[in-house]
Design a binder for these strands. Structure first.
Length: 423
RNA sequence: GGAGAGGUGGCCGAGUGGUCGAAGGCGCUCGCCUGGAAAGUGAGUAACAUCCCAAAAGGUGUUCGAGGGUUCGAAUCCCUCCCUCUCCGCCA
């Protein structure tokens, strides 16, 4: 959510800032609503103030045993007038809130212009894609003989699910372990175990609702739940409605969870293999920081995600997402893309975002600023470190041998019980 | 799932229809005291919205788990829901 004060004080500025994303803000409609809200609220406040004074006068009169009939009558008529104004005010305010909740974050000035992913800017590369003396296979061809079973998953669940068995399942677990150990031991994150089912308010807080309802899996029941699309949701919601002491910042949080996504808008996209699944594991990094520290934190957090790929010795590149490709909650995002030899291209494996105060405002997540003594909004950041399923894909494809067996990255050997090769 | 007890400010906790945004305590801030500190002592210390506005100050409103109701007036009475605790049952 954007700062409502900014929306009132500089509506044209907000509109032109959002236009960078291709988002059209109806300035006239919003201004009209805001105008109406203002006059209704002033009137409601005035009536309430009168009513309160009147009610107080009743109490005083009664304590002096005076006649209160006239005061009671005027109180009643004030109440009636107030009721109708309040009804209008409520409806206007609901419209304003709905509009505010539909607005994406304002982009940082350093975000490149552009309409879609073709305009993303590569900021650096690491590693050199390996030259194969044979035709490299994709992870499906490599994985199926080793225990990657899409048919079994299809029978019990349907498309976009997978069963991993034996050494592949172990490799999957090893990847998650490596990531958690790296982030907790080397990068200073605190590990968390969190709920995978959350309420709607939690998703509103991080920005998935109300706009992206169709991307979520909802669970029936009363109250209903949503399956988390990422651990960003529970981790960031840890600071919901909290006022943090300054010495607690930055909060650096990590969790390994499954993630559930309906992939509603991705019909026909990446249908082969493990690239795009309804359920996948991810190790997620979240930082809660002082506002002035958030851009340094974004660089740091992105580096932490990169370190996983470096540890695995997987070639990757870092993109600065352009205006049109940056997620609604984010002010600036770096994507990490890992090299996939079978596709002969880089594919997204991590996305690291600075949401500034966008989520914090929805969550009412604040810290006590010692400089002002006031409770002020924190900045929140999140990044995958990394998507475990896609990391498995990358290891299979990049470490494949001519005979279809898979080498084990040095960093994973300790987690694989001494295995050096999957066959 | 059943029975009971609760949810009040940064924290603990009093408050069952009216001058209550809320006693008291803890914590914190600033002073006094002291060579300095502790102890003692005095004062201050909620958030949000909105109006005015360059800003400060100020005015008004809302908020005592959430939502609704009763009333001239609700932390307090009624209804629904959520959460916590204790006991019982079931269960990984």
């Amino acid at each position: 959510m954007l700062d409502p004060k900014l929306l009132r004080s500089d509506l044209p500025g907000v509109a032109s800032a959002l236009a960078r994303r291709g988002f059209v803000l109806d300035v006239a409609a919003f201004a009209a609503l805001e105008e109406r809200r203002k006059s209704l609220q002033i009137e409601a406040d005035r009536l309430r103030s009168e009513r309160n004074a009147n009610a107080k006068a009743v109490g005083i009169a009664k304590s002096k045993a005076l006649d209160v009939a006239a005061l009671l009558a005027s109180g009643e008529s004030l109440g009636a007038g107030l009721q109708s104004i309040e009804k209008d005010l409520e409806s206007v305010q609901a419209q304003i809130t709905a509009l505010q909740m539909s607005l994406p974050n304002i982009l940082d000035a350093s975000v490149p212009d552009g309409r879609d992913e073709s305009c993303n800017v590569e900021v650096r590369r690491w590693g050199v894609p390996r030259e194969f003396a044979f035709q490299p296979k994709d992870h499906v061809a490599l994985g199926e003989p080793l225990g990657m079973d899409f048919e079994a998953a299809g029978r019990m669940s349907g498309a976009r699910f997978v069963v991993l068995s034996g050494k592949l399942a172990k490799l999957h677990r090893a990847l998650a372990q490596l990531m958690l150990d790296l982030h907790t031991k080397e990068h200073g994150y605190r590990e968390n175990y969190v709920p995978y089912l959350v309420n709607a308010a939690a998703l509103v807080g991080t920005g998935q609702l109300p706009k992206f309802e169709q991307d979520q899996f909802a669970v029936r029941g009363d109250p209903g739940f949503y399956l988390i699309p990422t651990a960003e949701v529970p981790l960031t919601n840890l600071v919901r409605e909290q006022i943090l002491a300054p010495e607690r910042l930055p909060l650096k949080l990590v969790a390994h969870t499954p993630c559930f996504r309906s992939e509603a808008g991705a019909a026909g996209k990446d249908t082969r293999g493990m690239i795009r699944q309804h359920q996948f594991d991810k190790v997620e990094l979240v930082q809660i920081v002082r506002p002035e520290a958030s851009y340094a934190a974004l660089e740091e957090l992105t580096g932490h995600a990169e370190n996983v790929l470096k540890a695995l010795e997987l070639p990757f590149r870092v993109l600065s997402l352009c205006a049109g490709d940056t997620g609604a909650s984010s002010a600036k995002t770096y994507d990490l893309e890992v090299w996939l030899p079978a596709q002969r291209r880089y594919r997204e494996i991590s996305s690291c975002s600075n949401c500034e105060s966008f989520q914090a405002r929805r969550l009412q997540a604040r810290w006590r600023n010692p400089a002002t003594g006031k409770a002020e909004l924190v900045h929140t950041l999140n990044g995958s470190g990394l998507a475990v399923g896609r990391a498995l894909v990358a290891v299979l494809e990049n470490y494949q041998q001519a005979d279809g067996s898979i080498g084990i990255p040095t960093a994973l050997k300790g987690y694989m019980g001494g295995d050096t090769l999957l066959r």
